[in-house]
Design a protein around this nucleic acid. Sequence first.
RNA 1: GGCCCCAUAGUCUAGCGGUCUAGGACGUCGCCCUCUCACGGCGAAAACAAGGGUUCAAGUCCCUUUGGGGUCACCA
Length: 605
Amino acid sequence: MTRRPSSVTITASVTIARSSAVHRPSARVTTPVTVVVDPGAGAGGAVGEARAVAGRARVAAASSRGRRTTAEGSSSRGRPAGEARRGARITVIGGGRRCSPAAASGRDPRTPCVLQGPPMASEDRPVRVRIAPSPTGDPHVGTAYIALFNYAFARQRGGKFILRIEDTDQSRARADSEQMIFDALRWVGLSWDEGPDVGGPFGPYRQSERRAIYAEHAALLVERGGAYRCFCTAERLGQVRAQQQAEKRSTLGYDRHCRGLERDESARRAAAGEAHVIRLAAPLAGKVIVHDKLRGEVPFDVGQIDDQVLMKSDGMPTYHLANVVDDHLMQISHVIRAEEWISSTPKHVLLYQAFGWDAPEFIHMPLLRSADKSKISKRKNPVSINFYRDAGILPAALLNFLALMGWSFGGDREKFTLAEMIEAFAWDKVSLGGPVFNLDKLVWLNEKYIHELSHAELVDALLGWRLSRDHLIEIAKLVRERIKRLDEFVPLTEYFFSGDLDYAPVIAEMGIPEVEPALVGRGLLALVERLDARDGWEAKGLEEEARAWAEEHQWKTKHAFMLLRLAVTGRKASPPLFDTIVVLGKEITRRRLRVAAEAVAARKA
RNA sequence: GGCCCCAUAGUCUAGCGGUCUAGGACGUCGCCCUCUCACGGCGAAAACAAGGGUUCAAGUCCCUUUGGGGUCACCA
């Protein structure tokens, strides 16, 4: 055997551990590191030992800016992952020079540079987190899901949980949505310390009420060269995009046509009232490193980032600007949001850079999925919190179930309270695979919760649900003329209290004469879409919608409405259809329509 | 398609190099309990995507491939 040298010096490309990544500190950045090893204590061959040391040296390299690192050779097992978790940080990325904000914001666009990832929120910084739902429809389970993790984290750390309404899209805003979001969140048991309805020191908490703030910040950016006015029309943008697609360009996006405009000219045109947007002047070359607490350093090539619109021509900010400005002004310490945001995070990092602000820590939770693994959507799954409420799910069970999506309590514990979750909460127990929202398991959990209720509590739960006095009165209005004795009430109104209906007894009659069942099924789905697009839920409007729908399909209302009646009540006779639908509520109705559509489509022609 | 993320049973997950002949749960199936149905109890089938490395040792680390997902708007 060859005599071992007294020491071995290897120079290797050592990959720097992603700083403070909770998961897999895998290689992202390669930096030459020289490791000097004393093989004295090593059990294996010197080279092998040196490699092991090099592995351990990753962390050291990360924390020492890639300078020469000496590591003691020893046979103890290095755990870079654990060490990385404990806070090794990257301060220099790769070999590029650091960017000045000016360079980053485009004054010096030709010089390649590497942007530093956002600094980590320091451990002792007060925790302030937020959820920022957009009031564009029904309260979404995804909102509750993300809210839960924000809430649990905030509570554990004694921090604040903030609710902010992101209503900058005037075209999609829905009048009743905001209140429904409040109600739904409170229903599951999450409450906020600051928000539009409770106030707070950093208000207003509705973005539509903060327009002046965004305008001011956008102007500041334009002044500094970090953003510019764009006068391109929608048509031109469309053409550019079409051409890029025709050319099969790998990177799509705005062609920066207006970026070269002279400042004076730009200002003059704006002053003259010409419609324009304000765009981010993204650096033209280099990398942006996003630091994600769960994933570590996520690199993005700046070439992939286009000059994102910051201010729309209607004077409203886009999400990107509003979210960065608000998070900074509201002193948000951790941005906990869904994974779908990860690819726009580099833009946000660029914005923080351009403003000269420290970025919060980013934590992207995995996306809730439908059974086919795609992002959960109302076409494939009930996504409204109201659905689960109306379907008889207890709020505690829903919350517990949501906690199971991507997080594990520890041990084999699956059933736990919010308080217990807060106590046990830790980011390293989050798993990154996208969890499928599985109704079966939710129902099983719900069963557990119901069985724990006392008899009196069960009754209270029922009375607070569809057996409430108010709801019964609504039903009484519909059936009083239709019963002769009290004992007829329950059998006659059973479908007001049921979940999914059994269509087997009536399936033969669920159809439209001379129309393929598959087409009828599709028609039912089309009605769901129409109903979704509506604002209110009152009989007159519903009837109008249904009539328009029947006409569109060229179905006689007689047939179309019987189809609906069967779908919604499972019966051929019911109180007036649209009044019934109103009382049934949107969630039960749309679910039944969907289930019926499936049943019908599966029917033999 | 470019970029990014992810990868243990049908599903949710445990697993942080040796304790894994891979643990728990939902669902499925069987048995028991039982006047029925449920609950409950017991049991069974069912997974480390593939291929290369690294290592004495890999589900666990690295790479590639494959697969899945997200994103590429004057939507959030």
